[in-house]
Nucleic acid binder design. Structure first.
Length: 530
RNA sequence: GGGCCUGUAGCUUAGUCAGGUAGAGCGACGGACUCUUAAUCCGUCGGUCGCGGGUUCGAACCCCGUCAGGCCCGCCA
């Protein structure tokens, strides 16, 4: 019981049996894998609660009532007119970043546009939360009481925010953001309120009133959040470290939540995910790996495993190159071990026991479906599959080359498909590419020991013989061991030399399939050095 | 300026809340598997726990200070 999801799950169930784990994201731009941490952390907490014997629902509040802050880099300047307008009221961008009015007419909003692919990715990852569109919650009057309380106790609200965040609010600050006739929030000053309306005046003198019982306008973020907690009876929420800092919005939210008459939910701060070599994920910077793109390269289980195996407080550097290979191989290796059997060992130190239990929890959480057993291994590591996919274009042949007993064929095909996609992408690391030399390895050839020279001659004879008997995998596979035996050189050395001469590296994939895939003349040319 | 998080072997990290001889995986190195070598198994090497003080019989862990990276105190997962 040491995995973070188990710890928090148990703590929650101690308090009460039924839980609502909340998440929330503003759909202001393209979603990225950073947002996946928000969702997966919440989902894993919910599983932790269920494992501890409680019930838990996962909720995803889409902050569609938030305004467009600025014209992001991926948007056309035409969006300038929508700054300050709520995201559910503005058109989605088209391929050029221009407002797509046609799509808007047919019902797709800016928020929907960015949300759709994210929801698709979530589904693939097994995250299926109850969806709440915040603008609808406002329209349905879910926050009427909280708005009223905030307006009536404006000074108290101000005091809480100022004291806890240490920030000074302006004299004309109000705990409500009204919208004008266009749905724009910018530049409006609140002039008063009554039981149902907030009155405002714009910079240009226009005045108006917002009916807050039907969702005209919204609470500012620091009040919006605790109002959600109270309405939905949220018992736990994981949030980014920006909210978790002392005096941050969780702290003020907790106090405002009490003002609304409820206890705040359990909070869990998580760190950001950054892209290796680039900075933090930012929707506006454009240098992101979207959830969909990530899932084209990585099986959902591995993405889940990444989140599950990293404590929330730890920053993650998402690496689509060698780091991905290492992660995926570590995962595959873990699945092959019978961790449950290892636990039976009475001699285990407490630490080792805990480490194994941790691995069990993390691998269970990696499963897209919530279940008590762990996913089965697929039979190949990423590394090995990367090689096989490069030397064989037929999926059927690759399948035959792995120990496929008990492996789900569809699962395997899906993984191979992603592997091929990865190989053809710019993410695939050069050091993983199987490269056959164009020219003989002159340096190495000039530097052979007598034994190595004897081996080389034997190899050439064997390859020439294979020309007669058939240049196929079965015939070729014996060539190196035969030659090694003949000259009494360790097999290891024999392979090493062969690789050096053919590929220029001393460690490589299985040789026979590679040889069979090569032109015989090319092999002999490289071996002879002429 | 105030605050939060992170810093442990070449790499990824566990252990920090409840102080008790630093654990693991990868890589490297060595060996085994006598048709193998990105496969599998076994073994070895590798750590001044960012740094400096303090408390303690004993500190990676607690306290103070300090350095580095990231973040918050408008909005941001």
């Amino acid at each position: 019981m040491v995995h973070w999801s188990d710890v928090i799950g148990a703590r929650l169930v101690e308090q009460r049996p039924d839980h609502l784990v909340n998440t929330g994201i503003t759909p202001s731009g393209e979603f990225h894998i950073g947002h996946l941490r928000e969702m997966l952390t919440g989902e894993m907490i919910a599983r932790g609660v269920r494992k501890a014997g409680g019930t838990a629902e996962l909720c995803f509040i889409i902050d569609s009532a938030d305004p467009l802050r600025k014209v992001y880099s991926f948007l056309d300047e035409a969006y300038a007119e929508y700054i300050g307008v709520q995201l559910f009221r503005i058109p989605p961008p088209d391929a050029d970043g221009k407002p797509d009015l046609a799509a808007f007419e047919s019902g797709t909003t800016y928020a929907d546009h960015f949300l759709a692919p994210f929801l698709e990715a979530l589904d693939m990852l097994g995250v299926r939360p109850r969806l709440v569109y915040n603008h609808q919650a406002y329209a349905e009057g879910r926050y009427v009481e909280h708005v009223r309380t905030a307006l009536q106790q404006r000074d108290r609200v101000r005091q809480i925010i100022e004291e806890i965040s240490g920030r000074e609010l302006t004299a004309d600050w109000w705990p409500y953001s009204p919208v004008d006739e266009r749905g724009c929030m910018d530049g409006l000053k609140v002039t008063g309120f009554d039981d149902t309306h907030v009155h405002w005046q714009a910079e240009d003198g226009r005045t108006g009133s917002c009916d807050y019982t039907v969702g005209e306008g919204k609470l500012p973020w620091r009040l919006d959040w605790p109002a959600k907690w109270v309405w939905l009876d949220v018992t736990c929420e994981a949030f980014g470290k920006d909210h978790g800092t002392t005096g941050g919005s969780y702290d003020t939210g907790a106090e405002l939540c009490r003002l609304f008459g409820a206890e705040p939910p359990e909070g869990l701060t998580y760190e950001w995910i950054s892209l290796r070599g680039q900075g933090a994920m930012s929707s506006s910077a454009g240098t992101t790996v979207g959830p969909i793109e990530a899932l084209r390269l990585v099986p959902p289980e591995i993405l889940r495993y990444l989140i599950a195996s990293t404590k929330p407080a730890k920053a993650i550097e998402f690496d689509t190159g060698m780091g991905l290979v290492n992660l995926a191989d570590a995962y595959e290796r873990l699945l092959r071990h019978d961790l449950e059997a290892k636990l039976e060992d009475e001699e285990l130190s407490r630490r080792k026991r805990v480490a194994i239990e941790d691995d069990i929890s993390a691998t269970r959480l990696s499963s897209v479906e919530e279940r008590n057993d762990r996913p089965g291994a697929v039979g190949v590591t990423f590394r090995h599959l990367a090689m096989l996919a490069q030397i064989r274009s037929s999926d059927e042949q690759v399948w035959d080359m792995i120990p496929n007993e008990g492996v789900d064929r569809r699962e395997f095909d899906a993984r191979l498909n992603r592997m091929r996609h990865w190989i053809s992408s710019h993410h695939f690391p050069d050091e993983m590419r199987v490269g056959i030399r164009d020219k003989p390895n002159a340096e190495r050839l000039a530097d052979l020991t007598p034994e190595e020279e004897a081996l080389r001659m034997a190899l050439i004879r064997n390859f020439e013989a294979s020309l007669e008997t058939g240049w196929n995998e079965a015939n070729l596979s014996a060539n190196v061991p035969d030659a090694a035996r003949e000259v009494e050189l360790p097999l290891r050395e024999a392979y090493r030399l062969t690789y050096e001469l053919l590929l220029g590296v001393d460690v490589a994939p299985k040789l026979a399939p590679l040889l069979a895939a090569m032109e015989p003349e090319r092999v002999l040319h490289l071996m002879r050095g002429e």
